[in-house]
Computed example of a mutant assay.
Amino acid sequence: MTIEISKEARAQAIASLQRYFSEHMEEKIGNVAAGGLLGFVLEEIGPTIYNQAVADVQERMQMRVAELDIEIHEEEFGYWRKFDKQRRGK
């Protein structure tokens, strides 16, 4: 699965890469080179980050599903209990 980002996010990522090179490297990087680097990172490293994010979400969802019985549990056969409580209170 290819990781795709929006045109706006791509433009911001390219600008961020250019700024990073400008501030932290000895040479600047052009728009085309930054776009190529971004493409490489998305294709080579992106899947690792994506897969970890999916695993994190799966773990969180499994924890939430495991808690469903506690959060939305309803007592069974409670109709007569309310009448029994009323009789005891008299």
Rank of each mutant, 00 (worst) to 15 (best):
I14R: 00
W80S: 14
I45S: 04
K85P: 00
L37I: 10
A13C: 03
I49G: 01
Q58T: 13
G35K: 00
E67Y: 09
K90E: 04
I70M: 08
Q86M: 13
A53N: 14
M1H: 11
H24W: 09
M63I: 09
D84L: 10
P47K: 01
L68I: 04
E23M: 02
Q52E: 14
E26N: 10
E23P: 00
L68S: 10
R10I: 03
A53P: 02
H73V: 12
M63R: 07
S6F: 08
T48P: 01
E74H: 04
Q58E: 14
D69W: 05
A34I: 00
A33D: 10
A11I: 04
K90F: 07
E74D: 04
G39H: 02
E23V: 04
M63F: 14
E75T: 10
V41Y: 07
Q12C: 06
Q86H: 13
L37W: 00
M63N: 10
F83H: 11
E8Q: 13
H73D: 10
E8F: 14
G36V: 01
V54E: 07
E23W: 01
E76R: 09
T2P: 15
Q62D: 15
T2E: 14
Q52S: 08
D56S: 09
E26I: 03
A55N: 09
G39L: 06
K28C: 03
K82E: 11
I3H: 01
Q52G: 03
F83N: 06
Y20L: 04
E76N: 04
Q18K: 02
A9E: 15
